[in-house]
Design a protein around this nucleic acid. Structure first.
Length: 613
DNA sequence: CATCCGACTTGAAGGGAAGTTG
DNA sequence: CAACTTCCCTTCAAGTCGGATG
């Protein structure tokens, strides 16, 4: 969706208008071409100007919008008491629960099949919060969670979900239509001159908190959010959303320095939750673009910074050495910054600055390598990071120094935290923080890998495999793991069966081709000649199908425990992919699905096949 | 400074819609 | 067309980072 204008015949400038889904021009990019595409198809060389010009003016005072109107959040549906025939037993005896106690009990019952409910911590936290909802009578009767029998409730919910699956087409359609209606009513807002999709317009329903990993608060009751808990943010001159009959919002404010529409404070960690816009919105897209521009600026000076931190390994000051080694890890291994966390409030996970002595092991010699560092720790979401890396002697010696006289639970970088590190980075480059390295290294790796892996004459499926492999290299760098799908082995087997069948089919078709050729040699008539052609085509088609299947199998096998989504969505400059797709005539839908195309609309508009990150 | 808080990005998982197959 | 598989989207937890506070 862009127009190409030649505004000045002598010094041409190419102007791209990005048009939003509601038909408005959102912003404008200007390109100053170095080389112009010639008649014989020579490449058009374009260079982006340092700062793109926005069609709509952006203020400099930090305000994010001028006008904001929305319908407010969709609240969680009220609790519906269980039908009378669904019973709860305590110590083998029937016990009728009060509605509040029953509601919390159903949260537990719904999770009965999940491993969570067997964990001591989960049960303990749940039980403690559940008691708070009980009447005094219930409290005196129910004294041991192990004597509670939730099975009838659990069975009831399973039956309910089964019934939902068995619904008729009509009923399903009705629900779909109702959801669509709610989406149309609450799922959009007007920000400045645009109708924008809202990301999450539903308030999180009450339930039991499920932390990741070994979370000290797992099982606690996440309470129901009432209108009185909710802060609305919109512009003064907009139609304010109405709270439900007989209720009121906690507050209606008009703060255009922030992008959120609705917020409330959650009761588990006391943190604030927000309703914000969808990634396809102008405000998110602009920010995303900015992020990649910062990473590209890092590209220009990264060698300088690397030389700098290598120099700092020799510093007289301990804090400088620690900072330099940490930065080396962040750069080389794409580690996260690693903020401090409040002990006992969350799972025990670390990032670079919060690494502890117990998380690394030093091996002066390992197999045929020298100075090997072994990392083993739980990172974000309690995902294990395990890696062995040979480092330079100087880094190794520094690490030995940092470890001196320390206990396993002591900080590796005791003179460093993310605030110090980021302040230092800010001085080295405007806008530079630890996470920019992750973005930069991810994107540059994709670009390099695509260059390396794509061969010009391979088929489209082979190109897609190459793309996924490049993507995979990034996911591995960023340690984006997933649990192998439960049905992995089976689905692999199924695919193998298909391949075997295709193989058989191929040899059969080849035999037929041979037969047709023989026949043609004997008869030399048109009919048999045609037959040879038909069979030849059939062989070719089958070969292609077989190859496609084999590519799929390889891709799936290599992807068993790797998650590509996160890097694709958050770390890879989409313009690299767009350029690649355009260069090799790969259909965009093979790389980006609908949602992704919406999110990256700006990049699809902007990037040509020679885009360089 | 250290700590807390607020805003925003990044993350894996679950569930359901859509596509495929027997 | 039911059953199964795949893929997408939503959900909500868990990070990062900057600024206020004392």
């Amino acid at each position: 969706m862009h127009f190409l204008n030649e505004s000045d015949p002598i010094k041409p400038r190419y102007i791209f208008f990005h048009v939003s889904s509601d038909g408005c021009i959102l912003f404008r990019f200007e390109y100053k071409p170095k080389k112009i595409k010639t008649e014989n198809g020579k490449k058009l060389k374009l260079v982006t100007l340092p700062s793109p010009l926005w069609e709509e003016e952006r203020s400099t005072d930090g305000s994010k919008w001028k006008f904001l109107e929305h319908k407010g959040p969709v609240l969680a549906p009220p609790y519906e008491p269980l039908p009378g025939h669904v019973r709860f037993f305590y110590d083998g005896k029937l016990l009728r629960l009060s509605a509040p106690a029953e509601e919390v009990a159903t949260f537990f019952a719904k999770m009965l099949d999940h491993e969570y409910t067997t964990k001591e911590m989960f049960r303990k936290n749940f039980y403690k919060d559940w008691r708070k909802e009980m009447t005094s009578e219930e409290k005196s009767k129910i004294t041991d969670i192990n004597k509670c029998n939730f099975t009838e409730m659990s069975e009831y919910f399973k039956a309910q979900s089964e019934a939902r699956k068995q619904m008729s087409k009509d009923e399903k359609l009705k629900i779909k239509e109702e959801n669509e209606r709610i989406l149309q009513e609450y799922g959009f807002c007007v920000m400045d001159n645009h109708k924008e999709r809202i990301g999450n317009f539903r308030i999180e329903p009450p339930g039991l908190f499920r932390g990741r990993g070994d979370h000290p608060k797992m099982g606690m009751l996440k309470r129901r959010i009432r209108p009185e808990d909710i802060i609305i943010n919109c512009s003064k001159d907009s139609k304010h959303p109405k709270p439900p009959q007989g209720t009121r919002w906690k507050e209606v404010r008009h703060d255009n320095k922030v992008t959120w529409l609705v917020s409330w404070t959650e009761n588990i960690q006391g943190s604030i939750k927000y309703i914000m816009l969808n990634p396809s919105s102008r405000i998110k897209g602009e920010k995303d673009w900015q992020k990649y521009e910062t990473a590209r600026r890092l590209k220009k000076c990264v060698e300088r910074l690397r030389a700098q931190y290598r120099e700092d390994w020799k510093s007289k000051e301990m804090r400088v050495r620690q900072r330099a080694v940490a930065l080396y890890f962040i750069d080389k291994l794409a580690l996260r910054a690693g903020n401090e966390k409040e002990e006992g409030e969350t799972a025990d996970t670390v990032g670079c600055c919060s690494l502890r002595v117990e998380h690394i092991k030093l091996y002066p010699k390992m197999d045929d390598q020298e100075y090997v560092v072994e990392f083993d720790f739980l990172g974000k979401d309690s995902i294990r990071y395990y890696n062995k890396m040979p480092v330079e002697k100087r880094v190794f010696k520094n690490l030995q120094l940092f470890l001196e006289n320390k206990q396993p639970e002591d900080d590796l970088f005791d003179r460093l935290n993310t605030s110090i590190l980021n302040k230092h980075l800010q001085e080295l480059m405007d806008g530079l923080t630890a996470k920019v390295f992750r973005t930069y290294n991810a994107s540059i790796t994709l670009q390099q890998q695509l260059k390396e892996l794509t061969s010009p004459d391979e088929s489209i499926p082979a190109k897609i495999l190459s793309y996924n492999r490049a993507n995979r290299a990034v996911a591995i760098l960023c340690n984006h793991q997933r649990a192998a799908p439960k049905t992995f082995e089976k689905s692999m087997q199924n695919l193998q069966t298909k391949i075997d069948e295709k193989q058989k089919q191929l040899s059969a078709t080849r035999k037929q081709l041979k037969g047709a050729k023989t026949e043609h040699k004997a008869s030399h008539d048109d009919r048999s000649k045609k037959m040879v052609e038909v069979k030849r085509k059939a062989v070719q088609r089958t070969e292609e199908q077989l190859m496609k299947l084999q590519m799929q199998a390889t891709d799936r096998e290599e992807n068993k425990q790797i998650a590509l989504g996160t890097s694709k969505l958050n770390y890879l400059d989409p313009r690299i992919s767009v350029a690649w797709v355009k260069k090799w005539d790969v259909p965009m839908e093979k790389i980006y699905n609908k949602t992704q195309r919406e999110k990256f609309a700006w990049a699809i508009d902007m990037a040509e096949e020679d885009y360089e990150f």
